[in-house]
C-alpha cells in the first residue's frame, strides 16, 4: 500500500523546472568531472526539512519515475512526500534496489556494500549516494587523487564515521564496481566518484 502524499503542507520545488534542473545538471557534471571540487547549486527555494538545498536540487534534477530511491528519512516525514510529489520517484525499502540513495543521518547509514555496486557487464547499474554532511571545505581534509584531479585535491566532509571510510577503502579495490557519492552541505556539493582514491 502506497502512503498518500499530504498536499496541505507541500511546498513548491524549482521556480523554473526546466532551467533550474539544467543549471543543476551542469553543476553535477562539473562536480563529477572534478572530484572534490565544491560547486554551488544555483537555484533558491525552500527545501523540505531535513533536506538541505543542494540535496533537494540534486533530487529534483536526477530523480524521476524510473529511479527508485532509498532514503533514511522516516516514512511519515514531509520530505518523503515532497520527493515523491516533485520527482515522482518510487521509494524502495531496500538499499540494494535503489538507483539513488538520500542519506541524512551518517551515523546510522548502511554499509556501502548494502547498495547496488553494479556487475561486471554493467558497472554503471549502481546506486548513486547523496549524503548530507555537516560541512564541506577544501582545507585539511582527505587527500583525493585520480581521474579528473591534476595532482591532488583536499576535501573535508563533516560528520562521516570511520566505518564509512573503511567501507569506501574496500569498495575502491572492487573497481570498476562500486557506488558514486555526492556530498552536500547547505547549497553546495562535491562528488566522490568510484575512481577517486582517498587518503588520510
Amino acid at each position: 500500500m502506497v502512503a498518500t502524499i499530504n498536499l496541505n503542507e507541500m511546498t513548491p520545488g524549482f521556480s523554473d523546472p526546466v532551467f533550474n534542473s539544467q543549471e543543476t545538471f551542469r553543476a553535477i557534471l562539473d562536480a563529477m568531472a572534478h572530484p572534490g571540487r565544491i560547486v554551488t547549486a544555483g537555484s533558491a527555494f525552500d527545501p523540505p526539512h531535513p533536506l538541505n538545498l543542494a540535496s533537494s536540487a540534486l533530487c529534483l534534477t536526477l530523480l524521476d519515475f524510473e529511479t527508485p530511491l532509498w532514503t533514511d528519512l522516516d516514512s511519515d516525514q514531509m520530505a518523503i512526500g515532497w520527493l515523491r510529489f516533485h520527482c515522482g520517484c518510487p521509494v524502495v525499502p531496500n538499499p540494494s534496489e535503489a538507483t539513488f540513495a538520500m542519506i541524512t543521518n551518517n551515523d546510522v547509514m548502511p554499509s556501502l556494500n548494502k547498495f547496488k555496486t553494479g556487475n561486471d557487464e554493467s558497472p554503471e547499474s549502481s546506486t548513486t549516494l547523496i549524503i548530507q554532511t555537516s560541512g564541506l571545505s577544501s582545507m585539511d581534509g582527505k587527500r583525493l587523487s585520480g581521474p579528473g584531479i591534476e595532482n591532488f585535491s583536499i576535501l573535508k566532509m563533516g560528520g562521516l564515521t570511520e566505518r564509512f571510510w573503511q567501507d569506501r577503502q574496500i569498495q575502491f579495490t572492487m573497481f570498476p564496481l562500486g557506488v558514486d557519492i555526492i556530498f552536500t552541505c547547505e547549497n553546495t556539493f562535491a562528488a566522490l566518484p568510484r575512481t577517486t582514491k582517498v587518503e588520510g
Binding site: 498536499l7 507541500m10 511546498t11 513548491p12 520545488g13 523546472p17 510529489f85 516533485h86
Partner: peptide, 8 residues
Amino acid sequence: YQHLRKPE
C-alpha cells in the same frame, strides 16, 4: 495563490 507544481 502559488504553484506547487506549475502546469506541465
